[in-house]
Computed example of a mutant assay.
Amino acid sequence: MSRFTRTLAAVALAVTAATGTVGWASGSSQRAVTGPPPGSAAWRADGVLGRELPDPAHATPEHVHSFFEGLTASERQALLERHPLVVGNLDGAPLELRYRANAHALRASPEPRYARLAGPGRQILAFDPRGRGQVAEVFGDLRSALHVSVVVPGSDIDAGTFDRRGDVYGTPAGMAKSLHTATGPRHAVVAWAGYTTPVGLGLDAASGGLAEAGAVRLTRFTAGLAADELPPPVVFCHSYGSVVCGLAASGLGAKDLVVLGSPGMRADDVAGLRTGARVWAAKDATDWIDDVPHVRVAGLGHGADPADEEFGARRVPAEDARGHTGYFAPGTDSLRAFAAIAEGASR
């Protein structure tokens, strides 16, 4: 694309977003959920153990992990029962304890939309009911896994749409389940909907505010996995989720970073991501994301297309995928490639 064409596209994008025309008005502005887990004030004030508890706002996942390592089983259980929303969302806390804490919190929730998440056998690694709700779920045995993947979704995802029955492979749960099925038994996948996503095609989707807040949360989440001595993850980032991953890339500790249907990563090329991970990109010919101008102007737009050769990412075949949410559909070449990347076979 020539400089003149890029400039025209950038102006069009800015005007479109600013005036609310051509569908951008269909989005509604969202306020990012940030900061420590709900109930943190009561946690800080609790003297049940006769000692200070790690501050959820400032303690590193490594500190949290060390703290819980020093507790007895009964002390851990006491904290779970008194502060399930803190324990369940505290990166660095033991996996099994977080599963139990979130099951407890979900069962106690008056919100009927969370009933499915409280079902037997589900491994909910994070549950934050604030705003539209945030969830992370594990498929497979994360504790014994030789390979770990994390799926980061894009717009219109929250606790209510996390595992919706329609457009399954556009949901974090659907993508993660499909990847887990396509890989071996020693592979675990985390569906991570741990940030406030844009709704519709409004200014939130064209700007980076929600992605910046999400990047902080994603970086902390993967640091929690590392503190629990789990393998470095392969991170799959769909649509607006790739903006989150682009901003978080340097701090994720990922061995591979895979973006699909990306509007851009807020970087000009792979070097601009400042990551040691291998970077992969997939985009099928029928994905509407290809119509989005890959530019940045006045804070709007997300920059270069990761699927362009000039970006420097390794290309993932996606001839069999259909539309914006078909990359994880069973039988597609993209899913086969994702599974190979997740298990390290493409190294």
Rank of each mutant, 00 (worst) to 15 (best):
G331S: 11
G23W: 09
D256T: 12
A254K: 05
E75F: 03
G224M: 05
P84L: 08
L335R: 11
T5H: 10
S239F: 07
A126R: 14
G303Q: 08
A337T: 14
R76Y: 00
G174W: 10
R314V: 13
G272K: 11
D268S: 15
V316A: 04
F127C: 08
A345I: 06
I341M: 01
S346M: 08
S109N: 13
A73E: 15
I124K: 06
P110C: 13
S74N: 03
L8T: 07
D163T: 04
R51W: 00
M265W: 08
R107F: 09
E212H: 14
G303L: 05
F4S: 13
D204K: 01
S250K: 13
S29V: 13
C237F: 06
L53W: 03
L300I: 04
L97G: 00
R130D: 10
R186E: 15
R266T: 01
G202C: 02
H324G: 06
L257N: 02
G133N: 12
H65T: 11
V292I: 15
L95T: 15
L252A: 07
A25V: 14
A45L: 12
R143W: 04
G253P: 12
A249N: 09
L71V: 10
R266H: 13
D290S: 15
V11H: 07
L257P: 00
L218W: 04
P153D: 06
G140Q: 06
S262F: 08
A205M: 11
T19E: 15
L106Y: 02
V235C: 06
F338T: 10
G214R: 05
P61S: 12
V235Y: 01
G50Y: 10
F139D: 08
G160W: 02
P317I: 07
A73F: 12
L300R: 05
P56R: 11
V270G: 01
D204Y: 03
N102I: 05
A313L: 05
E309I: 08
D163P: 01
G344R: 11
T325R: 12
D163R: 10
Q77Y: 05
H147K: 13
W288E: 07
R122M: 12
P153L: 09
A12V: 11
R3F: 14
L146K: 15
A126E: 13
V292P: 00
T34Y: 04
P38I: 15
V151D: 02
T19D: 14
A298Y: 06
D163G: 15
